[in-house]
């Protein structure tokens, strides 16, 4: 196997959330930057799934939007199949690259145009990328796509409101697959769905991956879902990776105190009546993150060093973890 298909090197994205210029001058307010993603690196091999997990505001969706080119990174590089994707996005070849990278969004009620028929929704990328122009060929392709996600050919003339949430998400998947992409960025694809429908959609995604050799970046806050779909898992906290490991290592022997906390916070289905150990505290304000390790105010193992020095990702027995306590063998 050659170089990994997806390579993120030190990706960072800051948003300028300062007050308007005049207010800054009059009220002497400083410029304010929100570091949504702050130096995230990972690789995904072809045909594999990397899952990013974390609580709201940790920057996982920003990573997704960076990869598909909806944001320009403020620092770092995203290499896709050996080429610098953001450099290519700027050129005439950008369209060709976008064809190979597609996205599935969280809310199937918002991501499908309610005034378009399903066939127009699914055919849009085909026409946009100039893949098929002959109407008969487009129709055949749309029907094949609908079939591959478990919908029927006659569904193509319906409108999105005639479908349930799970069916709509299937339409989103069919649209994403229309250009025959290699890499799918899925931002919480099942969070808006009921569990029984979630199972159907996750199964379809897995079957399509096996059949078409797709590579997934799967973003979720649900660790049980992540355990089911992923090969590798990255745990994010306040814009940085706290831990990155293959699935089994991460779930069987989590190293970072935040990962352990997240795993403990999941309700266990079959131990009824057993209360979880609730973790104290909340995610700090990302505009004013704590110095040192961002997790230190909530961490039971924090010491002086954690409050001052920011830990880097280090390799430790099969996992990469950003924690001083792990580095010093304190935990």
């Amino acid at each position: 196997m050659n170089a990994p298909l997806v390579q993120a090197n030190d990706l960072a994205m800051s948003f300028d959330v300062s007050a308007p210029w005049l207010n800054r001058v009059i009220e002497r307010k400083p410029r304010l930057l929100l570091h949504a993603v702050d130096g995230v690196s990972f690789t995904i091999a072809r045909g594999q799934t990397l899952a990013l997990v974390g609580e709201s505001g940790c920057g996982k969706s920003t990573v997704a939007r960076l990869l598909v080119g909806l944001h320009e990174p403020t620092r770092g590089q995203f290499r896709f199949d050996g080429q610098d994707a953001h450099a290519v996005y700027q050129t005439g070849l950008g369209l060709k690259l976008r064809r190979r990278i597609q996205m599935i969004f969280q809310d199937p009620y918002a991501s499908l145009n309610p005034r378009w028929r399903v066939e127009d929704i699914i055919a849009e990328p085909l026409r946009e990328h100039g893949l098929l122009s002959d109407n008969e060929a487009v129709r055949e392709r749309v029907e094949a796509l609908l079939y591959s996600v478990g919908l029927a050919a006659p569904d193509r003339i319906k409108y999105p409101h005639q479908f349930s949430g799970g069916q709509r998400q299937r339409i989103s998947i069919a649209r994403a697959l229309a250009t025959q992409p290699e890499f799918l960025v899925c931002d919480e694809p099942t969070s808006a769905l009921d569990v029984s429908v979630q199972a159907q959609v996750l199964n379809i995604m897995k079957e399509l991956q096996a059949e078409l050799g797709l590579t997934y970046l799967f973003i979720s806050h649900n660790l049980a879902v992540v355990r089911h779909v992923s090969d590798q898992v990255g745990v994010m906290y306040l814009g940085r990776l706290a831990e990155l490991a293959d699935k089994h290592t991460l779930f069987d022997s989590p190293r970072h105190p935040y990962t352990r906390m997240l795993l403990d916070a999941i309700p266990k289905m079959h131990d009824t009546g057993r209360a979880r150990t609730p973790v104290q505290g909340e995610v700090p304000n990302p505009l004013n993150p704590p110095a040192g390790c961002a997790f230190n105010p909530r961490c039971p193992h924090a010491n002086e060093r954690c409050r001052v020095e920011r830990p880097a990702l280090i390799a430790r027995s099969g996992t990469q973890v950003a924690c001083h306590a792990v580095e010093e063998n304190r935990i």
Binding site: V195, S196, Q198, A199, L202, N203, K206, A224, R227, H228
Partner: peptide, 15 residues
Amino acid sequence: CIPDMTQERDLLHQI
């Protein structure tokens, strides 16, 4: 059909 933390299956049961 609920993905479970304690066991792994290749495909989830689906209704």
